[in-house]
């Protein structure tokens, strides 16, 4: 029977991945408490991305699966990134040749004192 031949991921592998995921959660929580300046955001995103890749490859078994499924996932992510990138190409550069001024004109922001 066909389905009986599917790759069975060993418990050990799953447990190791789970451990790594917990560890990375700890790392991201700790590093976010430290002020790294401009590095905080990319670091958090890299950690989140690594966790997501681990879940996708092992828990979701893409590593062992039909490659077309991996392709589908990659396409989805690529187009989400296209959406983000091309929208930011507008919002980050509004007013670049003086046609429209960026942002709003009426509301101003004053910082809140942190505790």
């Amino acid at each position: 029977m066909a389905q009986g031949q599917h790759h069975i991921i060993p418990i050990r592998t799953l447990a190791v991945v789970f451990g790594v995921l917990l560890f990375l959660t700890l790392v991201t929580a700790v590093t976010a408490r430290v002020d790294l300046g401009a590095l905080n955001v990319p670091l958090a995103l890299i950690i989140a991305g690594s966790k997501a890749i681990l879940v996708a490859l092992v828990f979701m078994a893409l590593k062992y699966d039909n490659k077309v499924n991996l392709l589908v996932l990659v396409l989805g992510v690529v187009f989400a990134v296209v959406f983000l990138a091309l929208t930011l190409a507008d919002t980050e550069f509004r007013g670049d040749i003086g046609i429209t001024e960026p942002g709003t004109t009426e509301l101003s922001v004053e910082p809140v004192e942190s505790e």
Binding site: A29, A32, A44, A48, A52, V55, A56, M60
Partner: peptide, 21 residues
């Protein structure tokens, strides 16, 4: 299972973006 892992992955991104940075 696949569905649930995806729900997990979404949260993996929501957590740092909303709570941490």
């Amino acid at each position: 299972g696949l569905y649930w892992h995806l729900v997990d992955i979404i949260w993996i991104f929501l957590f740092p973006l909303l709570y941490l940075i």
